[in-house]
């Protein structure tokens, strides 16, 4: 009860901070549009490349773009937290009886909401280009994005609380997110990769989200892959939240 109330209060705070800044809102809307406009022209010819998965260019690519959006969107959340840390806001909250868990969840829910809205924009814009998606596929896709958003943003908040400084946080998340993206098969199919690289890719949780999303969007593949993707993303979210919540509860020494 108290957790819910505190989470709601924190969620409202961060939503207000986001919405009251027109620049962020505009960037938030333009981002998915840019993703689509800059990738779309490349897709037409790519379909014929050997190893390109079957199912239609947009149905193969849009799920990947959504996962990329989720990953990069969540990677940036630490900056706001570091600014608040510096202004003493986090200490101020920690002196109140506010639930430590809510400090994390409230912010993460705001991050998820913005990711979901961006995803819907991207999906809707893709329809005129030839994306075909059932309601079920969209629901599963959004669930995957939400879980990625929760897991990665919680981990990024933990990293921000640990590093406390943009100058070390930025290189860390950008250095990590690029290989994670490449090895998830979002941009290029990992079937093209040599064996050792594929083995590393298999250890990347996002690969399973990408596989699951392609199954639901292209109809090729098994339902077990979908379940596996959802389960692994749920596990990522649980681990991320556990680590993030621990960091918020710990003294920021």
């Amino acid at each position: 009860m108290k957790l819910l109330r505190d989470t709601w209060l924190m969620f409202q705070r961060y939503l207000w901070i986001f919405l009251s800044n027109p620049a962020w809102v505009i960037i938030g809307v333009i981002q998915p549009v840019l993703y689509l406009l800059l990738f779309a022209p490349l897709l037409k010819s790519l379909v014929h490349v050997p190893g390109f998965p079957p199912g239609g260019a947009y149905n193969v690519f849009v799920p990947g773009l959504l996962i990329q959006l989720g990953l990069f969107g969540a990677a940036g959340v630490g900056f706001g937290l570091i600014a608040e840390l510096r202004a003493g806001v986090i200490e101020r909250f920690r002196v109140t009886p506010c639930s430590r868990f809510a400090l994390l969840l409230g912010r993460a829910l705001r991050d998820i909401l913005t990711l979901l809205i961006q995803s819907v924009i991207l999906l809707v814009l893709s329809i005129p280009f030839g994306l075909q998606a059932s309601i079920g596929a969209v629901v599963i896709m959004l669930a995957l994005v939400a879980l990625i958003g929760l897991g990665i943003s919680a981990l990024c908040y933990a990293a921000a609380l640990w590093l406390k400084d943009e100058n070390s946080y930025a290189p860390l998340v950008f250095t990590l997110s690029l290989p994670i993206l490449l090895l998830s098969g979002v941009l290029l199919p990992l079937q093209l990769a040599p064996g050792w690289l594929q083995a590393i890719g298999d250890a990347n949780p996002l690969l399973y989200a990408v596989n699951a999303s392609r199954v639901v969007f292209t109809g090729h593949g098994s339902g077990a892959d979908v379940a596996k993707g959802l389960a692994i993303m749920a596990a990522l979210a649980v681990v991320g939240v556990a680590i993030g919540a621990r960091r918020f509860a710990r003294a920021i020494a």
Partner: peptide, 9 residues
């Protein structure tokens, strides 16, 4: 705290 506690935005 020494830093304050209110946020710019």
């Amino acid at each position: 705290s020494q830093e304050g506690g209110s946020y710019d935005d």
